[in-house]
Nucleic acid binder design. Structure first.
Lengths: 226, 226
DNA sequence: TTAGTGAATAATTTATTGATTGTTCATTCT
DNA sequence: AGAATGAACAATCAATAAATTATTCACTAA
């Protein structure tokens, strides 16, 4: 890491701290400069403007969120159905808790998106890729019966919009949303899976709220085994 | 209609005109009073406050929107699947055009909801009832295979959230949203309908954009025939 | 009694101003 | 040269004052 990369990191660390404590608007460039023991002007050698610092932080946040979810993909001993359900519920819970505990993170995201609409589009695309991978897997193993994977990915994503950043749409509790999402997933699963001997596909059960660390650990263990 | 009901109507008509032209905030009670050739004070004999005039207008708007959709239920010669699809697409198109052509209507709705959260809850409930009726019908006729109608109603409603007032979530075009919704409905239909001889349920096609008048006329004709 | 008034008041909104902040750049350091 | 500064300027924000508006109510008219 070059000297100037280190300085850049220092700015990001200071900004993340201040943004999450006091919020983006209340954080001044002068303060960031002071935190980094430099002059305000020097910040502009590393970022084109204040908003670009926020964009970089939000970008990393979004990437690490998707990585957490992708960890589910690397966990062994799971059917495609289980994977899909875990991913969707993880999304609901992760974003729900985020809005509940870190309101400043949402504020930051909203500011970034209103300034850079492209940011949201790319975040959604990354999310969809996870769905698509699971559908492909399920398709290949014969567990799912998907006629058109890209179209179904879009459908799946569209049908679960309400369960990402749910508090933006409703003031239901997490428990209510989980019950509702279970019904949605039941419906979707009946659409994805072939019926065996005329018996309806069994209902989706709300998965346990495994924490992020344990999923990551499980995935790491599986990787090590290989 | 009593004398005082007529006066009340006069106020509502004047308010609707001004709200849709200049918006709720820019309309003053004094102006409404002048339109109705009365004093500001007298308005308060008919409405508790300014916001209550807006609530009444929004309530009527919401009711008539649901009535339009309910007209689909009374149309003959339609399978439950067709009904469901027509209702969902009608919802997308109706709300899309509303936001596109009548931005003040959205503004009004947002003001009412932020002041009276119950208003939104009841509007959603009315919408869900339409879904529930269709599911019941389909269930009864054997066209649908629904294990739990209330749960499936909730699922169906939740899965189609994005396609009501879609511009609040995305800046996709109507055509894009229609294609996407078709995929969602295909997925849902595969979840609702029994598979016949192992053949996948056929994809949802985007229905023609029949106008409201023609649906209402069709329903009326059907009613007259009986 | 019921319908309506309009001036008085309380609540909000808008305009104005002064202070703060983001950004630039000529200049100084290393 | 590249790295960093900090004063200067423009843009934005916060605080306050001014104006407008919602709401009330004592009162009049029918």
């Amino acid at each position: 890491m070059s000297e100037s990369d280190i300085t850049r990191e220092k700015i990001i660390v200071a900004a993340r701290e201040r943004f999450s404590h006091y919020g983006y608007p209340k954080t001044t460039i002068a303060e960031l400069a002071e935190d980094c023991a430099m002059s305000p002007g020097n910040i502009y050698r590393f970022f084109k403007g204040k908003i670009d610092i926020a964009v970089e932080i939000a970008r990393r946040e979004a990437l690490s969120a998707v990585e957490v979810i992708e960890a589910v993909l690397d966990c062994p001993l799971r059917s495609s159905r289980q994977r899909l359900e875990e991913v969707v519920f993880a999304d609901l819970r992760y974003t729900f808790h985020l809005l509940e505990n870190q309101p400043k993170t949402l504020e930051l995201a909203q500011i970034v998106v209103s300034d850079r609409p492209q940011f949201q589009i790319e975040s959604l695309r990354r999310e969809r890729r996870v769905f698509q991978r699971i559908l492909h897997e399920g398709q290949a193993s014969g567990e799912f019966m998907v006629v058109n994977v890209p179209a179904t990915t879009i459908a799946l994503h569209g049908a679960t919009v309400k369960y990402r950043y749910a508090q933006l749409f409703t003031n239901q509790t997490l428990a209510e949303l989980e019950r509702e999402l279970a019904h949605v997933m039941t419906l979707i699963m009946r659409g994805l899976m072939p019926t065996v001997e005329g018996r309806a596909v069994v209902e989706t059960r709300i998965p346990d709220e495994t924490n992020v660390a344990s999923i990551a650990a499980e995935a790491a263990a599986a990787a090590a085994e290989k």
